[in-house]
């Protein structure tokens, strides 16, 4: 098996997952709605004070992304399981990691689309003005999302095939994601304020390290998780 073959497998899985999603749109509608709903709930919980909302914006936004995005991961395997398709997928020749990478990329695209809708809504609801360095903010969001989706896709391979999958995934995933949440929120908050202390860089490096470590670990461990 050459790398090219594996890459074609990855592409096929990405295409299949995204096409399924594009044709039904059930998942994306629900997840986007959930994200906006959580933003609204945070607005009610924190009160209508603009200053307080602005200060909490990055934290509320990231929690909205985590709580809504987590609903997508189980679904990505559940659709396979319902049709008995996971077995066929495993029977095809090729490496197991190609399945993981395919699902990872599909989930990443999915969550990024959700963010493309939820983040502007958050900026409007919480009355946050974009700072001049906003491209850096996109970078932080993408890095945070990669960490989130990497572990989410990995843990969902287990939780979707266990009892009580809806409960199990957040219980496993959220404690592991605390470094991602902390660094994404701290870096975003500091960038939104114009990064006066130049501290965003350290958080971004931590995010990058987290992404690389868990991407490699998940790639290596996925084989053991999916084959039983």
């Amino acid at each position: 098996m050459t790398w090219r073959d594996e890459w074609r497998r990855v592409q096929a899985i990405v295409w299949k997952d995204l096409t399924t999603e594009r044709r039904s749109k059930a998942g994306i509608n629900a997840v986007v709605f959930m994200g906006v709903l959580i933003l609204l709930l945070f607005g009610f919980a924190l009160g209508p004070d603009t200053e307080a909302l602005r200060a909490a914006a990055a934290g509320a936004l990231w929690l909205a992304i985590l709580f809504s995005g987590v609903l997508a991961f189980n679904r990505s395997y559940q659709l396979e399981l319902d049709g008995g398709a996971l077995e066929s997928l495993l029977l095809y020749p090729g490496s197991r990691w190609a399945i993981y990478v395919g699902k990872l990329i599909a989930n990443l695209v999915f969550v990024l689309i959700v963010e493309a809708i939820v983040i502007p809504v958050a900026l409007v609801l919480y009355q946050v003005a974009l700072p001049p360095g906003w491209p850096a903010l996109i970078g932080v969001t993408v890095l945070g999302t990669v960490g989130f989706v990497t572990l989410g896709t990995f843990y969902a391979a287990m939780s979707s095939r266990s009892r009580a999958r809806e409960v199990l995934l957040p219980l496993l995933l959220f404690p592991m994601l605390i470094p991602v949440l902390l660094s994404a929120v701290e870096a975003s908050t500091s960038l939104l304020g114009g990064d006066p202390m130049l501290e965003a860089g350290a958080w971004v490096r931590l995010l990058g390290a987290f992404d690389i470590i868990f991407l490699v670990a998940s790639l290596l461990a996925f084989e053991y998780v999916i084959e039983v």
């Binding site: 572990l151 287990m158 496993l172 592991m176 670990a217 053991y224 998780v225 084959e227």
Partner: peptide, 10 residues
């Protein structure tokens, strides 16, 4: 298998 993977990642 699963808990070994989860234990290691943890």
């Amino acid at each position: 298998q699963w808990s070994a993977a989860v234990g290691l990642l943890g």
